[in-house]
Design a protein around this nucleic acid. Structure first.
Length: 477
RNA sequence: GCCGGCAUAGCCAAGUGGUAAGGCAAGGGAUUGCAAAUCCUUCAUCCCCAGUUCAAAUCUGGGUGCCGGCUCCA
């Protein structure tokens, strides 16, 4: 296997991957805040996490994957007048915030299933981990990393000199009050809330820290990752917007509380653009899986569109681009179907000896995917194999190997599921229909022959007429 | 103002010093009753300017534009 390398935001460079514990990888993904339906932008981060996990697993690592669900609201500003988005949305919908998070979480999991994302091992919810968060806040107070003002607790940035090592922001360069009112309670503008108290809050807890309390935005990830993955773990991922302040603050909290390194490798996905610009509700371009379906696309089309690009590169979502991805996916499904239909032509297959051509393709694929998940380059090798096959440059003895390779590719990407709306036909039924069609064609009854072709097409069966007769295979969409 | 990142054909997107992968779309031809299938074929000097180098899309400097962060956000 080629070397596995990843870009580490912390090091600002691509570096070789080595797990803390041989053979095992523990990783944490910043998941959704469950107050609104996830959209295509969110999916990019989640699909990236899925691909990362699969690449690690295919290399034989035993992966423990954790993705949090933020189901508690955070005030928008540190100054107490801020509005809680989760509670605001709940009010808008006239439902209880608990009911809101339950519904959105359900939708989130349904979306993940549709996108064929492998379930993480744990999906911890913030509201289920109040004691863990309180314990960590108390620890930070004990260690002098935090201070209390009434029932509010703030992290003292001056007690963590490495603050800024992830984002490159230096405390002295942060413009206090640039976009947010200065909170007079804080000793330093860069200090951030660990725990807040507000009687007006709906989701609130009475704890050792005081009454009517609720967690600061960052503490849940520190507390929950520690619970499920330990004080130091391998990989932490999220969208690029999480680098600062969220992940920077997590590092400060976790390392401040334990005195140990928090995470070895930080990976961040770049924001998805829509129509060349940012995605925003006001622009009406915040798309969900429902919008994708309404345009006649499969969730797997979106999956392929997102995963075929590099996670750190900008990706521009347009309907035209999605259509292009859907066509490309279709052609690979077709390739798979054609290979499957070759079963009776395969001769000279040696299960112990890789076909050199397919082995070389596989090597190119693996080199690319192991190099910081270069999916575009990896998938190019799959298309090249397809072209080779269609040009007759692949021997029948190699077909089986091509199928093995495609299965490996699909184990990582999962987009080769053709799917069709029509009925399932057995091979015998297909043959019978093709005989009927051949007769109709002889009699120049093209209306009937085209009807049969359409019938087969709806069942995902592609037919090709040639001077030497009609061939068919499954794999159409 | 400060901190990151990106800029490759109509569209999507690889490539980080040696002369532009791959996909989609489009044009021409073949095949076909027709074709949505398939084959052959055509289609970029890499945002701009200036440097370094025998050689730059790839390095340096300066612009311009876009994205993210300094507020919740994947």
């Amino acid at each position: 296997m080629p070397d596995l390398r990843f870009y580490n935001t912390l090091a600002r460079q691509v570096e070789p991957f080595a797990p803390l514990e041989p053979g095992k990888v523990r990783m944490y993904h910043c998941g959704p805040t469950v107050y609104q339906r996830p959209h295509v932008g969110n999916y990019r981060a989640f699909l990236f996490a899925d691909l990362l996990r699969r690449v690690l697993e295919q290399r034989g690592f035993q992966v423990t994957q954790v993705m949090n669900l933020t189901d508690v609201g955070h005030i928008q500003g540190d100054a107490d007048a801020g509005e809680d988005k989760l509670e605001a949305e709940a009010r808008k919908r006239r439902i209880d915030p608990w009911e809101l998070t339950r519904r959105v979480a359900e939708q989130f999991f349904a979306d993940l299933r549709a996108l064929q994302v492998r379930p993480a091992h744990h999906y911890p919810r913030a509201t289920d981990h109040i004691p863990e968060m309180v314990a960590m806040v108390e620890k930070l107070l004990q260690r002098g990393c935090a201070y209390q003002v009434g029932h509010n607790v703030y992290f003292d940035v001056s007690r963590f000199p490495e603050y800024g090592k992830l984002s490159g922001n230096r405390v002295q360069d942060l413009e206090a009050g640039a976009r947010l009112e200065i909170n007079p309670e804080k000793r330093h503008p860069a200090d951030f809330a660990l725990w807040k108290s507000d009687p007006a809050h709906i989701m609130k807890w009475a704890t050792a820290l005081g009454p009517n309390g609720f967690p600061g935005w960052h503490i849940e990830c520190s507390a929950m990752s520690r619970k499920y993955l330990g004080e130091t773990f391998d990989i932490h991922t999220g969208g690029e917007d999480n680098v600062f302040p969220h992940h920077e603050c997590e590092i400060a909290q976790s390392e401040g509380a334990t005195g140990k390194p928090f995470v070895k490798l930080w990976m961040h996905t770049k924001f998805l653009m829509v129509d060349g610009g940012k995605m925003a509700k006001s622009l009406g371009n915040v798309y969900t899986l429902d919008d994708i379906a309404a345009r006649g696309f499969s969730p797997l089309d979106l999956r392929f569109f997102i995963l075929r690009s590099h996670y750190r590169g900008s990706l521009n979502f347009t309907w035209e681009a999605l259509a292009g991805a859907a066509e490309a996916r279709k052609s690979l499904c077709d390739f798979k179907g054609r290979l499957a239909a070759e079963f009776n032509r395969i001769i000279g297959y040696d299960p112990n000896q890789w076909s050199p051509v397919v082995a070389a393709t596989r090597e190119a694929f693996q080199v690319a995917i192991n190099d910081d998940l270069n999916a575009s380059a990896a998938l190019a090798s799959v298309f090249e194999l397809r072209n080779r096959y269609l040009r007759g440059q692949l021997e029948p003895s190699e077909f089986r190997w091509a199928e093995v390779f495609l299965a490996e590719v699909d184990d990582l990407f999962t987009f080769l599921e053709a799917g069709h709306s029509g009925p399932d036909f057995t091979s015998d039924q297909v043959e019978r229909l093709l005989q009927e069609r051949a007769l109709a064609r002889q009699q120049k009854d093209f209306k009937k022959s085209d009807a049969i072709r359409a019938q087969l097409a709806s069942a995902g069966i592609v037919i090709e007429d040639s001077s030497s007769g009609t061939r068919w295979h499954r794999g159409g969409i």
